[in-house]
Design a protein around this nucleic acid. Structure first.
Length: 890
RNA sequence: GCCCGAGUGGUGAAAUCGGUAGACACAGCAGAUUUAAAAUCUGCCGACUCAAAAAAGUCGUGCCGGUUCGAUUCCGGCCUCGGGCACCA
C-alpha cells in the first residue's frame, strides 16, 4: 500500500472498481440478503442545462444528492439517483449563431464533457437511465401528451400579447428585455398580439393550492407558490347598460362585469374603469380618435410588471355610462391604464374613498369621493387630499351612508350585498386567482416541435389548425439547422414545412413554433423510471414515484416546481399515473458565493479582478486591512467588493475542474459539504479547501499506518474490555449517534465535524505502542469512521476499506451495513453534572449514574460552592435536571 | 407597499425538548522540528476587570423589554440585511 495520500491513483482505482461492476445500476423491487423487499428511495437533482462545463452550484447540488443516496443505500434502501440533460433552449441557439455550429452538435459535445466531470466527482449515477430532452424518444411524449391535452381542452389556441423583437423576429421573455430593448438586437421591444398554444393551468389553481399542505417543502417555497396562485374571494357582479355594437346588439349582453373583494364599499362607487383591451373601450374609441390614441398608447407600453406598478395612473372618459345595480344612478365608464385585462373581467368598480389606486385616479381626474365605511363608533366625513388620511382596512369598520347595509361589518356587508345581487340575478360570491394560463409557444428553433399542421390560411377556409395524428409522432426536429439570428430557421426548411393536411390531404404547412423548455422539464424525472418504456411511462414509474427527495436551486420555486405539479395532475386525470404530487420532499440548496475585488479607473469604471490574483494585507489578528494584485510593484489599490454569488460578470467564479485537478474529487466534495449546511449560502474559501485536503491526508496516513496491525484482526469484539477500551468505544459511539442524527436531518456539515472528532480521538492510538487498546476494538472504531465518512468521501474510504480487509466481513463498502450505535457502550457509571447557583455556572459535581433525584440534590448541597452561597441557610429551591444539571436557588 | 427568511468570535459555523454559548474547522499568535523554508506536530485563541503568576470576577448570541430557577432558543416591540411578489381590484 502506498503511504502517501496520492488522490489521483486512489480515485482512479475506486472509479475503475465502480465502473467495472456497474454498481450504480438499480432495478425495481430489489430485495435484501434475506429476500425481503427493500424500501425504495428516489433522490433526484434538478437536471442541468448542458452549458459546457459544471459550475460550483452543480458540484454542491450533486454532492448533496450523492451523499444522501450513498448513505441511504447502506441503510438498506433501494436508491435511484439518475441524471439527464435539459438539452433544448436558447443558449444552444446563441452559441450556434456565434460559432456557426448546429445546436445539436454543441449540445451533445457539452453533454459528453460534463458527464466526464461528474465521473471525476464520483457521483453514484445510474447512467443506464440517462435522458436528454432533445432526443426524439423523449420529446415525442411531450407531443403525445400535448395532443391528449388538446382533446381534453386543457391545451388550446389563442392570441396573446407578447414582447416582440422586430429585428430578431422573435418573442422575448421578460427577463430578455432590458430597458425596453431587446438584449441582443437593441431594438425597441413591441407589444404584439400573436396566436399561440396555452395550457389551462388556472383550471388546476385549487388543487395546486391545496396540494401544498401535504408536501415536505420549505415553508417559503410553499408561500411563494401560494402567492403566485393568488387566491382571493370576493363578489363578481354586473353594472347594466344599453350600449350596443354595430349590429345593434348590447355589448356583453348589456352587462359590465367587475370583481371586487370589497363589496361592502359598493355604495361608494363613483366610476367604473375598464382595461384598454375591453370591448366597451373599443366601442367608445370607434368615433373618438383621442381615446383611440390613448388606448393604443396603453397597449404598446411595456408588459414588464415592475414597470406597470410604478407607472402613473392615467385614464380617459369614454362618454359612456352604466347603471349602479343598487342605487340605479348613472356611473361614468373610464379607460384606466391600471386595469388589467387578464385579471377578473378586465374592469373594476371605482371606490376612491377606500382604494388607494381609485383614490389617486379620482384625485387626478376630479371624480367624486364618497366615504361609505368608517371605523366602528365614529362616522367622520372629510375631504382630505392625502391617501394616508383615508383607509381601506377590513378590520373594525362598519358601513354607513349605505342604506340597508348601514352598521354592518365588512364580512356581514359582503354577504348581504352578494345576497342582494343573487336575488337580482346579476352577481354572486366568486373566487378569483392571480395565476394565468401557461403560454407554451416559442418562436424558436431548438425545442420540441408543436405537433400541429395548418391547413388553409386566414383568408380561405381550410381545415385550420389540425393535430398531427398519433401514429405520425414524433414530429422530428431537423438537427442540422444553423440559426443565423434572423428568426426561426425552421421557416426556411421546406422539407419540414411542407406536409399534407392529415384531414383533407391538401398541401398544408407545419407549425414551426416549439414548446417552452419548461414543458421538457415538467416530467423528465418520470422518464428516468423507464427510459426505454414503450409508452410515456410504465409500471416502473408507479414503483419509484412520487419522488422521495428533490434537490435544486430556489430559483425554480415557482416556475418549474409549479409546472411539474400541474403536469402530474393532468397525467393523473388522464389515468396515466395514480399519484397527484411529484415531489414529496424538497431541498433547496444555497448559493455558492465568493469574495469580489475590483479596481477603479479615473472615470469610476470598475474592473473586476479574479480573487486568485489578489493578495490581502492582514493585521495581527488576521483581519483584512487592504488588498493588492499579486506581484504588483506599483501597489495599485484593489477595492474589496464583498461576498457575492459566483458569476462571470463579477469574475469571482471558481472552476470545479481546476479544483478536482489540484485536490481530487474527494476534497472538493468534503469542502463543499463541510463549509455550510446544504440550505445555506456557501462561501468559497481557498484555505478551507486546503484544510479539507489536510484532513483527508490525516485519515489516509493514520489508516495506512495501522493497516498492518488491523488487516488480520477480528471483526468481533473480545468479551472483556479494558477501561480504556470502554472509554474509547463510548466516545466513538456517542459521536456516531450524533452523526446518525445529522445524516437523518441532512445536516452534512456536522456529519463531517463528527468524522473529524473521531479522527482526533483515534489518531493518538498507535497499536504497536499502546497495550491498552486491542486491535479488534480499534478495528471497530476505524470501521465506524470510514463508514460515517464514506458518503461524503467515497473514493478514499472505498480503497481503505479494501486495504484493511473490511470486505471479508462486510463486503464492499457500497453495500456494507450502516454502523449501529451500541447503546450499551454509551452507559456511564459516573456522570458529571453542572452546578448552578441562581442560574449561574459555579462548577460541577460527579454523581453515580443511577443516583436518585434526592441523592443528586444532597450531593449538590454538600458541594463547596453551594455551602458558600447558602452560608448556612436552606435553599429556596433546588432544580435537578437528570443527567444534566443541578440549580440551587439561594 | 405587501409577504417570507436571517442577524452568534477576526472568518465559516455548532448548540436535538428552554439547561456548560462558540463544538468542528479556517485565519492568527507562540513553540518544536529544520542549515533555512515548505510540510508536519504541540500549545494559545470572545471582550473586559484585577493580577507577577495561578486564579477569580463582570459582560457577551442585532437593539429594548417580558416570561422563567435558567433564554441563542419562547413572547411583545424596534433596527439592519437578504429574498420573493408587486396597479391582482
Amino acid at each position: 500500500m502506498s503511504k502517501d495520500y496520492d488522490y489521483r491513483s486512489i480515485e482512479a482505482a475506486a472509479q475503475a472498481d465502480w465502473e467495472s461492476a456497474q454498481v450504480y445500476q438499480v432495478a425495481e423491487n430489489a430485495v435484501d440478503a434475506q429476500g425481503k423487499q427493500k424500501p425504495k428511495y428516489y433522490a433526484c437533482s434538478m437536471l442541468p442545462y448542458p452549458s459546457g462545463k459544471l459550475h460550483m452550484g452543480h458540484v454542491r447540488n450533486y454532492t448533496i444528492n450523492d451523499v444522501m443516496a450513498r448513505q441511504l443505500r447502506m441503510q438498506g434502501y433501494n436508491v435511484l439517483m439518475p441524471m439527464g440533460w435539459d438539452a433544448f433552449g436558447m443558449p444552444a441557439e446563441n452559441a450556434a449563431i456565434q460559432n456557426k455550429v448546429p445546436p445539436a452538435k454543441w449540445t451533445y459535445d457539452n453533454i459528453a464533457y460534463m458527464k466526464k466531470q461528474m465521473a471525476a466527482m464520483g457521483l453514484a449515477i445510474d447512467w443506464s437511465r440517462e435522458v436528454a430532452t432533445c432526443s426524439p424518444d423523449y420529446y415525442r411524449w411531450n407531443q403525445w401528451l400535448f395532443l391528449k391535452m388538446l382533446e381534453k381542452g386543457i391545451a388550446y389556441r389563442k392570441t396573446q400579447v407578447v414582447n416582440w423583437d422586430p429585428i430578431d423576429q422573435t418573442v422575448l421573455a421578460n427577463e430578455q428585455v432590458i430597458d425596453g430593448r431587446g438584449w441582443r438586437s437593441g431594438a425597441l421591444v413591441e407589444k404584439r398580439e400573436i396566436p399561440g398554444y396555452y395550457f389551462n393551468i388556472t383550471a388546476y389553481a385549487e388543487p395546486l393550492l391545496s396540494g401544498l399542505d401535504s408536501l415536505g417543502w420549505p415553508e417559503r417555497v410553499k408561500t411563494m407558490q401560494q402567492n403566485w396562485i393568488g387566491k382571493s374571494r370576493g363578489v363578481r357582479f354586473a353594472f347594466k347598460h344599453d350600449i350596443a355594437d354595430d349590429h345593434g346588439n348590447f355589448i356583453q349582453d348589456g352587462l359590465l362585469y367587475v370583481f371586487t373583494t370589497r363589496a361592502d364599499t359598493i355604495m361608494g362607487v363613483t366610476f367604473c374603469a375598464v382595461a384598454a383591451e375591453h370591448p366597451l373601450a373599443a366601442k367608445a374609441a370607434a368615433n373618438n380618435p383621442e381615446l383611440a390614441a390613448f388606448i393604443e398608447k396603453c397597449k404598446t407600453g411595456s408588459v414588464i410588471e415592475a414597470d406597470l406598478a410604478t407607472q402613473e395612473k392615467e385614464g380617459m372618459f369614454t362618454g359612456l355610462y352604466v347603471t349602479h345595480p343598487l342605487t340605479h344612478e348613472p356611473v361614468p365608464v373610464w379607460v384606466g391604464n391600471y386595469v388589467l385585462m387578464s385579471y377578473g373581467d378586465g374592469a373594476v368598480m371605482g371606490v376612491p374613498a377606500h382604494d388607494e389606486r381609485d383614490f389617486a385616479f379620482a384625485l387626478k381626474y376630479d371624480l367624486p369621493i364618497k366615504q361609505v365605511i368608517a371605523l366602528k363608533g365614529e362616522s367622520p366625513m372629510f375631504n382630505a387630499t392625502r391617501w394616508e388620511d383615508w383607509y381601506a382596512q377590513k378590520e373594525g369598520v362598519v358601513c354607513f351612508n349605505s342604506a340597508q347595509f348601514d352598521g354592518l361589518s365588512h364580512e356581514e356587508a359582503v354577504s348581504a350585498v352578494a345576497k342582494e345581487f343573487e336575488k337580482l340575478g346579476i352577481g354572486e360570491i366568486k373566487t378569483t386567482y392571480r395565476l394565468r394560463d401557461w403560454g407554451i409557444s416559442r418562436q424558436r428553433y431548438w425545442g420540441t416541435p408543436i405537433p400541429i399542421i395548418h391547413c388553409g390560411d386566414e383568408s380561405n377556409s381550410g381545415c385550420g389548425a389540425v393535430p398531427v395524428p398519433e401514429a405520425d409522432l414524433p414530429v422530428v426536429l431537423p438537427e442540422d439547422c444553423v440559426p443565423d439570428g434572423s428568426g426561426n430557421p425552421l421557416n426556411k426548411r421546406t422539407d419540414f414545412l411542407n406536409v399534407k393536411c392529415p384531414k383533407c390531404g391538401k398541401p398544408a404547412r407545419r407549425e414551426t413554433d416549439t414548446m417552452d423548455t419548461f414543458v421538457d422539464s415538467s416530467w423528465y424525472f418520470m422518464r428516468y423510471t423507464g427510459p426505454n418504456a414503450k409508452t410515456m411511462v410504465d409500471e416502473r414509474n408507479e414503483y419509484w414515484m412520487p419522488m422521495d427527495q428533490y434537490i435544486g436551486g430556489i430559483e425554480h420555486a415557482i416556475l418549474h416546481l409549479l409546472y411539474a405539479r400541474f403536469w402530474i395532475k393532468v397525467m393523473r386525470d388522464l389515468n396515466l399515473i395514480t399519484f397527484d404530487e411529484p415531489f414529496q420532499n424538497l431541498l433547496t440548496q444555497g448559493m455558492v458565493l465568493n469574495e469580489t475585488y475590483y479596481s477603479e479607473d479615473a472615470s469610476g469604471k470598475k474592473t473586476w479582478l479574479n480573487p486568485l490574483d489578489v493578495e490581502l494585507d492582514l493585521d495581527e489578528k488576521g483581519r483584512p486591512q487592504g488588498a493588492k494584485l499579486i506581484g504588483d510593484a506599483s501597489n495599485t489599490p484593489v477595492i474589496i467588493g464583498g461576498v457575492e454569488k459566483m458569476s462571470k460578470s463579477k469574475n469571482n467564479g471558481v472552476d470545479p475542474q481546476s479544483l478536482i485537478d489540484q485536490y481530487g474529487g474527494d476534497t472538493a466534495r468534503l469542502f463543499v459539504m463541510f463549509a455550510a449546511p446544504p440550505e445555506q449560502q456557501l462561501e468559497w474559501s481557498g484555505a478551507g479547501v486546503d484544510g479539507a485536503s489536510r484532513f483527508l491526508r490525516r485519515v489516509w496516513m493514520y489508516s495506512s499506518s495501522q493497516a498492518g496491525a488491523l488487516h488480520d484482526a477480528s471483526d468481533s469484539l473480545p468479551s472483556n474490555l479494558s477501561d480504556a477500551e470502554k472509554e474509547l468505544r463510548r466516545e466513538v459511539h456517542t459521536i456516531l449517534k450524533q452523526a446518525n442524527f445529522d445524516y437523518q436531518r441532512r445536516q452534512y456539515n456536522t456529519v463531517v465535524s463528527a468524522a473529524m472528532k473521531m479522527l482526533n480521538i483515534l489518531e493518538p492510538i498507535k497499536l504497536e505502542q499502546n497495550a491498552a487498546i486491542s486491535a479488534p476494538v480499534l478495528r471497530e472504531c476505524l470501521s465506524i469512521l470510514l463508514r460515517v465518512l464514506y458518503p461524503v468521501v467515497p473514493h478514499m474510504t472505498h480503497v481503505l476499506w479494501k486495504d484493511l480487509a473490511y470486505t471479508k466481513t462486510y463486503g464492499p463498502l457500497l453495500d456494507a451495513s450502516w454502523p449501529s450505535v451500541d447503546e450499551a457502550a454509551l452507559v456511564q457509571t459516573e456522570l458529571t453534572l453542572m452546578l448552578q447557583i441562581n442560574g449561574k455556572l459555579r462548577g460541577d459535581i460527579k454523581v453515580p449514574a443511577d443516583a436518585s433525584k434526592e441523592q443528586v440534590e444532597s450531593l449538590a448541597l454538600q458541594s463547596e460552592p453551594a455551602q458558600k452561597a447558602l452560608n448556612g441557610n436552606s435553599p429556596k429551591k433546588v432544580i435537578v435536571v437528570p443527567g444534566r444539571l443541578v440549580n440551587i436557588v439561594a
